[in-house]
Design a protein around this nucleic acid. Structure first.
Lengths: 347, 347
DNA sequence: TTGAAAGCGCTAACAA
DNA sequence: TTGTTAGCGCTTTCAA
């Protein structure tokens, strides 16, 4: 039992943060801090007259609530941690934009971080975010280190794994099947009469989803009795990487009438290489990508690719989380949002 | 167990997070919480034997410190808020990557958010971040709403404004002169014999730095006695926007032998349009950009552009902040990191 | 509808 | 070097 009979001394003089506190707002409005807190958190639970006084005090003082204190008192912060492989990569940017927008307008803050396709960085990031007592965590993909999974389960909060819907989600999976995407595109190429299709990916041991698209490619090509050739480049995808990759294939005289790239960035690099060498696309070589990035529709020729449901993933994730926060618990565990085959002129 | 009329819909509101606390660690290690706290924050201040016991207790329990509690008690969190116009745009991604990496390995967490080039969103973001009691704030550019500036000053923490070094920084400016960049490129084009140079930018009322590059262009062109033509497109930069912009110029029969785009994305779009129309670059039309993005070196022809010190800005910002956190106070207020003219074949 | 009071989990004076 | 103790600023019982 702590005896705290004496009135609280002006705390600002002691270990001063210099910031306006709820206490000052309460004093100016002539109410208790509980009332101020209520006005901010559940308006409607407070009479209009008091609420008005509180609000004008907030304005006059320029009060900004201290989220650390709030989160600590409430045992859970109003934050959501979001972990993606890369923000440099515009794939995820569309999802994050949508997700952050929706969540933040509902009063939640999203913290995001990128792993650079490393499980170790992912683990560190999850641990760092968990230290904020987030109300939920959103990860990319379904493969994580054992410890990451353990930490996440121990946190007992909603966990969304996005951009994939294969088996084994921790809690909720929202995305689409990369295997099916790989299969679809390959089948399309076969229908168009291509017989020697080469798949090129980058760091596919780290990029699980690219590996799954390669798997889908393998299935389709094998089912058609055609040979499978998968190239896994050792560095991160970049436009600069696509050209040399194609050049290498050419030097090695690999028989090939279609190049299926694990993403549009690589495909654009390959396309540039074709322009440089005067290889006619798609007459001599079909080129296909994945992602439907900004440039895919305007490059020459425009790129045949797969459009993932970037924004839909963000929207669905936000909706799912908000529903969980509101107490709904019997929600779907997996949401397959599908994808679109964008047929353009490159293949 | 008593029946309740309205069961708490949300377990988040329950007291007790179920997380391992420092108290439990202390108990297991047979020490006080202060000792645990010290081991975690200033190792060396604790004897090896105790430190060892504490560390193994931390491991066994899987203890993750609660940053809310820590930040609250310490009056300042170990976070740094970073605000950029866009993460979709790879300009800033390089800076953020470098900055976050450096800061996080020094034990600081960066929170980042994007404003989508809106001052109002910037203000909201700054306010949201300030609610976390960050140890410092990093913004992009030097123009902000009055209230943003007021909030920032009131926070009494280091504030870095990056990517620009013109006048009027709140605290510290780290970047380069966009005006000089615009001038340099334009002078180069003039030296190469170009006489009708058109500048194309996008949403330049919001993108202050693009506007400054346009200003530099204007100065250079005027100084040379040449006409200035500045086009300001109404939507955000995208590859898809560059083609139509050039097409429009062509339709309007604007006299032009060089197109200076406010960034590489627009330039790439224009380049594709040239390919489509069979306009020889640079023979018929020179194309120049800004940013030196991934594709600039590999497109056809490779793009003449300006390389901003993306990573250096991140590095310098981190160094400056870390120095300030360490108590150094007499630091430079502005750091001009310069830029590189990358001459390639498109101009 | 409102207020008083008891912490949330941690850090930092201060003592020992 | 270590422990004791008093809060950090807020939320949430609980009682009025």
């Amino acid at each position: 039992m702590r005896a705290r009979t004496a009135p609280k001394p002006d705390s600002r003089l002691r270990r001063g943060s210099g910031r306006v506190t709820m206490d000052e707002v309460a004093r100016l409005a002539g109410v208790s801090t509980s009332t101020v807190s209520r006005v901010l958190r559940e308006p409607g639970a407070v009479s209009d007259s008091l609420a008005g006084r509180v609000r004008s005090a907030v304005d006059r003082l320029g009060y900004v609530p201290n989220l650390m204190a709030g989160g600590l008192a409430a045992a859970r912060g109003r934050t959501v941690g979001v972990v993606v492989p890369s923000i440099l990569n515009s794939f995820f940017a569309g999802t994050i934009d949508t997700l952050s927008g929706l969540l933040s307008s509902a009063g939640w803050q999203v913290l995001d971080g990128s792993t650079d396709y490393s499980e170790a960085r992912e683990e560190a990031l999850v641990e760092a975010f968990l230290a904020w007592s987030p109300a939920a965590m959103v990860l990319t993909g379904l493969r994580h280190s054992e410890r990451t999974v353990r930490l996440l389960r121990a946190a007992r909060i909603p966990v969304v794994e996005m951009w994939d819907v294969s088996e084994g989600a921790i809690d909720i999976a929202i995305g689409f099947s990369h295997r099916a995407a790989g299969r679809s595109m390959t089948q399309y190429l076969i229908e168009k009469g291509r017989r020697r299709i080469v798949f090129v990916g980058a760091i596919m041991t780290s990029d699980q989803r690219a590996a799954q698209r390669a798997e889908g490619y393998r299935e389709a090509v094998t089912a058609a009795g055609l040979p499978a050739t998968v190239i896994d480049l050792p560095s991160r995808s970049s436009v600069a990487l696509g050209g040399p990759a194609l050049a290498d294939l050419l030097v090695r005289q690999v028989e090939m009438d279609a190049l299926y790239c694990s993403n549009d960035v690589l495909a654009l690099g390959a396309l540039f290489e074709c322009q440089r060498r005067g290889i006619a696309v798609p007459q001599h070589l079909s080129i296909a990508g994945f992602g439907d990035l900004d440039f895919a529709a305007s490059c020459v020729p425009p790129l045949t690719t797969i459009r993932p449901p970037r924004e839909a993933i963000g929207r669905e994730t936000a909706a799912m989380l908000l529903a969980r926060f509101a107490g709904q618990t019997h929600l779907r565990r997996a949401v397959d949002l599908g994808f679109d085959l964008q047929i353009r002129r490159s293949a």
